[in-house]
């Protein structure tokens, strides 16, 4: 991690009586993938639009790429909006080179960069096609190509994988990881928790415009980890020393069980005890760390029930 690509400090934004973003603070470092998540209407788009200077915050401070946003800094950002924007009636290459020139590329640069990316995305032969003639997945890739065309230092991307098949998802994922590894910063807003788990270094979860979770993804998951283990196999797990209770796994397959442990029991001791018990057959043994999905549902659910109590 290097210097911050984005600094958001105590930012608030209201639309009339509605507070879309409420005293929000976070930063995004260069060389990291930063995930922003939250329920619909949580203030994600408003936050992103304030970073992009499309709308102005009521109060607070935002710095992008080392200072207040200006035309030169805008040219170092690649933005992929949630609902995709492309000119449908224009040939792919021409549209890309137009958008590239608006980002400050020269005519020749815009063309050659566009061709290079199209080749990388295996779309070179579609360069002369109109966007409307491409499949949805192809359009999605073109959209991505537009985002990185001008070699930005920061990419802000809404739902990068929607509408992509697994093969193309992998292509885009590789490109994003390469971008990160070469020192770029990525802000990714998504509902696909598995993508965050696979790719994101740090994350911010907001709800009602407020920060709910913020930090490295591993640490957040750790925080929500129960004092429990997950096992698969056969036998009577309840008689193992240190196990307090046995629950079937909510999404368990292969007879998976969640074993809640006594406060003084450690994983090592429990595992050792299981290994010595010949009546047990262990196929899987792991700490019960919740998925981001579960954390999301838990946090958002608490919010919802809190709302209900208030109302």
């Amino acid at each position: 991690m290097g210097s911050p690509a984005i600094v958001v400090e105590d930012v608030t934004k209201s639309y009339g009586d509605f507070r879309a973003v409420d005293h929000l603070s976070f930063d995004v470092q260069t060389g990291e993938i930063f995930a922003v998540l939250g329920p619909n209407g949580a203030g994600k788009s408003t936050t992103i639009r304030m970073i992009l200077d499309i709308i102005k915050p009521d109060s607070g401070r935002i710095e992008v790429l080392g200072g207040k946003i200006d035309a030169a800094r805008k040219n170092r950002i690649g933005y992929l909006p949630e609902e995709r924007g492309l000119y449908t009636g224009v040939p792919v290459l021409e549209m890309m080179s137009y958008l590239g020139r608006l980002k400050g590329l020269s005519r020749a640069e815009a063309r050659s960069r566009s061709m290079a990316i199209l080749e990388q995305l295996e779309l070179a032969e579609n360069a002369k096609n109109k966007v409307s003639e491409l499949s949805k997945g192809m359009q999605q890739k073109v959209q991505f190509a537009v985002t990185v065309l001008h070699k930005p230092d920061l990419i802000i991307i809404d739902e990068p994988f929607s509408g992509l098949d697994p093969v193309n998802r992998l292509v885009i994922k590789e490109l994003l990881l390469d971008f990160r590894d070469s020192g770029g910063a990525i802000v990714m807003s998504t509902h696909q928790m598995n993508q965050i788990e696979e790719m994101a270094d740090r994350m911010l979860m907001i709800s009602h415009g407020q920060q709910k979770l913020y930090g490295p993804v591993d640490q957040i998951k750790e925080r929500f980890a129960k004092h429990a283990i997950i096992v698969e196999g056969h036998g009577d797990w309840s008689k193992v020393p240190g196990v307090v209770s046995v629950e079937p796994l909510a999404n368990g397959r292969n007879g998976g069980k969640l074993l809640n442990l006594a406060p003084d029991a450690t994983n090592d001791v429990v595992l050792a005890a299981m290994a010595q018990d010949s009546s047990l057959e262990i196929n899987r043994f792991e700490r019960a760390v919740p998925s981001l999905d579960e954390i999301f549902i838990q946090v958002a659910g608490e919010e919802a029930s809190a709302d209900q109590r208030v109302n």
Partner: peptide
């Protein structure tokens, strides 16, 4: 069309 396609959002992050 630019508004419907949301290309407007890309345009105004490039120029004023």
């Amino acid at each position: 069309e630019e508004k419907a396609n949301r290309i407007m959002e890309i345009l105004i992050t490039s120029i004023t």
